[in-house]
């Protein structure tokens, strides 16, 4: 069974002074994997620039715009339709506890997954927060642990967009006890990696028909590696497992690998950026136009 979504990403940027030269990078295109197919993709922008794409280190398509004529405003929009397959979610463990652990302790496994096992700027937990690190019980499977972790982060943090920003680290989040999906995700990742479970940051879109937190903008969740099963998405912001309602754009080590918009601009004054997303399942009756 599949669901088809229409996804609109739009952003509007205004600048106090002329921008003399600019390169924008958008990591917003839904990716293609075993559960997702990109059916159509359209870009438009207010400067009539021709968008071009490249594949980043993790194999995700990035759209770019270059402009060398002075401008003060840029509107950009992407409309994509994505077919998402309904897959079984994991339940229970696939390997014995011993098998699981011997895989996670394996040196070659570590080398293959090192990017998602090491910690960096966002995900290194200070010693003072050691008591907040959720440790896997000795007889606990990875599957059970991850479910417990999802709930743990969900309960520990209060959703609040006010106090955090794009540069907030797990330590600040632990101190505040609040944050947005990005912060929930970083904390989940940091803790999973502490337990030697490979875990990666995912950005994408969330079905807006479900009344969940984090649907108005691009959403973030984590993917953790379950031995015997593979990668599974966890959304600690909503205490859910990522299913067909989650449309993935990209993954990486942390936010820095997934930030939807990056730009290098030559301008002097201040700037203002607004953006929004629309994610709707196209129902069978969707073609009844009004």
């Amino acid at each position: 069974m599949t669901t088809t979504y229409e996804i609109t990403y739009s952003t509007h940027n205004t600048y106090e002074e002329d921008v003399r030269e600019a390169l924008f990078s958008f990591l917003v295109i839904p990716c293609q994997d075993e559960t997702q197919k990109l059916k159509s993709l359209r870009f438009s922008n207010s400067l009539q620039l021709e968008a071009f794409q490249y594949q980043n280190t993790f194999g995700f398509e990035v759209a770019q715009l270059y402009n060398a004529r002075p401008f003060k405003e840029l509107g950009f929009q992407m409309i994509a339709t994505v077919e998402k397959e309904h897959r079984f979610l994991p339940f229970g463990n696939y390997y014995s506890l011993q098998e699981e652990q011997s895989l996670l302790q394996d040196y070659n496994f570590y080398i293959e997954h090192h990017l998602f096992l090491g910690t960096g700027y966002y995900t290194t937990i200070d010693q003072v927060y050691t008591d907040k690190v959720l440790i896997r019980q000795e007889n606990e499977s990875v599957y059970n642990y991850l479910n417990r972790l999802n709930l743990y982060v969900y309960q520990m943090l209060e959703f609040d967009p006010e106090p955090t920003h794009v540069c907030t680290t797990v330590n600040e989040v632990l101190k505040l006890g609040k944050g947005v999906c990005q912060d929930f995700t970083h904390l989940f990742i940091a803790l999973a990696r502490r337990n030697k479970i490979p875990c990666r940051y995912v950005s994408g879109y969330l079905n807006q028909g479900l009344n969940l937190t984090g649907t108005a903008v691009m959403h973030a969740w984590a993917e953790a590696f379950i031995p015997g099963f593979g990668w599974q998405g966890y959304d600690p912001t909503n205490n859910l497992l990522a299913d067909f309602n989650y449309i993935k754009v990209a993954h990486g080590c942390d936010y820095n690998d997934c930030s939807p918009l990056k730009g290098v601009l030559k301008t002097n004054g201040r700037q203002k950026t607004t953006y929004g997303v629309k994610v709707y399942p196209l129902l069978l009756s969707a073609h009844t136009e009004q």
Binding site: L23, S25, Y54, N56, T57, V62, Q64, V264
Partner: peptide, 8 residues
């Protein structure tokens, strides 16, 4: 800006 993408 962008030279790494052109490179890859």
């Amino acid at each position: 800006p962008g030279i790494m993408a052109a490179y890859r």
